[in-house]
Amino acid sequence: MIFLRLFWEFFKTGLFAVGGGLATLPFLYDISTRTGWYTQAQLADMIAVSESTPGAIGVNMATYVGFTTAGIPGAVVATLGLVCPSIIIIILIARVLKQFRNNKTVDAAFYGLRACSIALIASAGLLVARITFLNPGALQLEGAAAVLKGLLNWKAVALAAVLLAATRGIKPLKKLHPIVFIAASAVIGILFSF
């Protein structure tokens, strides 16, 4: 029964992959070698698509693998399998937290955790920024001027400057929904072939 097996494989992935969507990758490689549902080359394509479409990467991967393996019902079953452990575990934790919300120790732990969350978001952002703005290949070039010119992705820097000014400096634009800036960037990217 392919659907039951799909659900079970993704349930296990959802249960054991800790730390976000990319943490599911080792599990997906493992499923590929054990079941032969899809090849590793297909998996590489699926990763590329999952990263260049909206939505959580882990969820996108599960949908894609499920669809490749068993069509539309496969996609639904695999995705539900992936999120099932999260729903169960988080609801249990949320219940406990609700009871201990006013507990001093829990409050103290969260005081530390908030700094941790912000730091993790900042470092994830900076890692994306590094691949977005820098071309490490330019370090091989001859001459300081050529290195400086090639090292930074100047189109990206210019767009970032415009976006920063728009989202922080210009009053009527500041209030716009983030998706407006994302959509505008997509159009600019196509027009100026980023």
């Binding site: 590329a48 912000i118 978001i121 920024a129 977005t132 989202t167 990217g189």
Partner: peptide, 28 residues
């Protein structure tokens, strides 16, 4: 099936990544 290889998609996503960096910076 070749969605991620389309040049326009690649360009759009390179620019979206820039935007995501700026939005995350603001959030932080």
């Amino acid at each position: 099936t070749n969605f991620a290889e389309i040049p326009a998609v690649k360009s759009a996503f390179s620019a979206i990544r820039v935007c995501v960096c700026v939005l995350i910076f603001n959030s932080v």
